[in-house]
Amino acid sequence: MNIFRLAGDMTHLLSVLVLLLKIHTIKSCAGISLKTQELYAVVFATRYLDIFTSYISPYNTMMKLIFLGSSFSIVWYMRYHKIVRRSYDKDQDTFRPYILMLPCLILALLINEKFTFKEISTSFFLFVMWTFSLYLEAVAILPQLVMLQRTRNIDNLTGQYVFLLGAYRALYILNWIYRYFTEEHFVHWITWISGLVQTLLYADFFYYYFQSWKNNVKLQLPA
């Protein structure tokens, strides 16, 4: 564990807590994309399939349970909670998740690390699911970014949520650089490239978020 990775995990945790805070306290999910939340639930479900078989540390298991629990409860709130669901604007959330999931699944079948880790006991299925979750996480924010462009006035909590979600993967990139230089043969192109793509997708959001913070004006993304 290094400071970049711990900071990344805490930022990720904070993003989830900000969203849960928004939904649970003001009982509103205005401006939040249900499609992105559902994609994230799939990301965690497919990434943590081995939560009960491969134990790493109390921290690791606890964080996995938190991410699984929070992502599924956010989806539940937005779909079934009688008050929250009313504030969900499905006409603005029109991105079709399958056009993201299918290519990621095909790509995971074609390009995964199973071939370099032949001696590993992990089953091919787990490898493919884990790789699928990496690719899917890289693009899972797209429905939310599209929705932000359509939503004229983005409220602060939503803006902070997206910012923290983007920042966590940027911190992970620093973690991978750190681990590359401190641990021999720590090379994971698949994770690095998908993590880089994920962070680059936030580039324009970061720019407008920084501008709104610097000029102290409301955050707005150009349509």
Binding site: D9, K64, F67, E119, I120, T122
Partner: peptide, 10 residues
């Protein structure tokens, strides 16, 4: 059995 080193990350 050996575990994929990458799996130690979330």
């Amino acid at each position: 059995p050996l575990r994929q080193p990458m799996h130690d990350e979330l």
